[in-house]
Simulated scan of single mutants.
Amino acid sequence: MKQSALSATQAPVRPAGVAERRRPGLGRRTAEAAEKSWRPLALLLVCFGAWWVIAATGTVESYLVPSPGATLDVILDKPGYLWQHSWVTTYETLIGFVIAVAVGILSAVLMAASPTVEKTLYPLLLFAQVVPKIAIAPLFVVWLGFGIAPKVLIAVLIAFFPVVISMVTGLKAVDPEMLQLSATMGARPWQTFLKIRFPASLPHLFSGLKVAVTLAVTGAVVGEFVGANEGLGYVILQANGNLDTPMLFAGLLVMSLIGVVLFALVEIAEKLLLPWHAGRRDTATTPTY
């Protein structure tokens, strides 16, 4: 009797008319994932079908648009060659992305903390963003040589802006009442930043990271276009110069695949690090009235 009374007192109390929505099972989550993914997959199949029809009917000459089969044969015939150059591009992309994230977050924190810093840096960041990177890439090659440095620098410059803008937006989007409550309770500025501002800005930051990581791939390839002897940009340039369109298309497909994989990894990291944000619909309470 005492045990049942104790259990009753420890039972969670829910507001009237509100029921807790349980997390769906594996089958339900699989069905939801299939529901979300079948449309883009269908569109992708339609695009490949159109590509195959154009190549099969001879609407466009094969030296301009190779068939999907010819492109796949190149990928299967030279996997080591493509893997070697793909790894170089991926390595440059990851280094540039990490540097862009670190510098971008630091700059965003400074801009959010000081209006003077924001007014000083923001025009410079905007100017650096609108300047075509392909136009200044040769300067980086002249200054830094033909090594990895100019590719990484271009990747940083391209990926830096989305990180800064998204982080600044997140830091400024904090509920003012939360900041007032924190100040009322005697929290120091650094405590308010760590406990309130920074966690609240993470959803915005990850939105910028998804954009930045795909742009970093573009930046690395642009750097390889200007001056390199390895990487997917080098492969595409060599294939273009030799009119080897199957290899050119293979390089483009592999480059796109790298961007998609990196985007997916950032999205997975978001779901793991921010379960309170990415999974809030699964754990929310549902009104029953």
Rank of each mutant, 00 (worst) to 15 (best):
P24N: 10
V266S: 12
Y81C: 07
Q191V: 06
E177K: 11
A113E: 13
I154F: 02
V109F: 15
F249M: 09
I54G: 11
L274Y: 05
T245L: 11
E61C: 04
E61M: 08
E20V: 15
S86D: 07
M111D: 07
V101W: 00
F140C: 05
F140H: 01
V254P: 09
I165W: 02
M167A: 13
D282I: 00
F249W: 05
H277S: 07
L64Q: 14
G104A: 03
P138F: 01
M178S: 10
V156K: 01
M111F: 02
C47L: 15
I99K: 03
V217D: 08
A55W: 01
T59E: 10
G80P: 07
N229W: 06
T57G: 12
F127V: 04
V174A: 08
V174C: 07
I99E: 02
L126D: 12
V117P: 14
G231W: 03
R14K: 03
A33N: 05
A70K: 11
Y81R: 09
P24S: 11
P189E: 02
R281C: 00
S166E: 07
L82T: 00
L121E: 13
D282C: 00
Y81A: 12
V60P: 12
A5E: 15
R21D: 02
P246V: 06
G96M: 05
K195C: 08
V156N: 03
A33P: 07
K36V: 08
G251K: 03
L265N: 10
E177W: 05
L44W: 04
R29V: 07
G241V: 00
G233N: 06
I258C: 09
V217H: 04
R29A: 14
G58K: 00
I268P: 10
V98S: 11
A100H: 02
V88M: 06
N240R: 13
A137T: 10
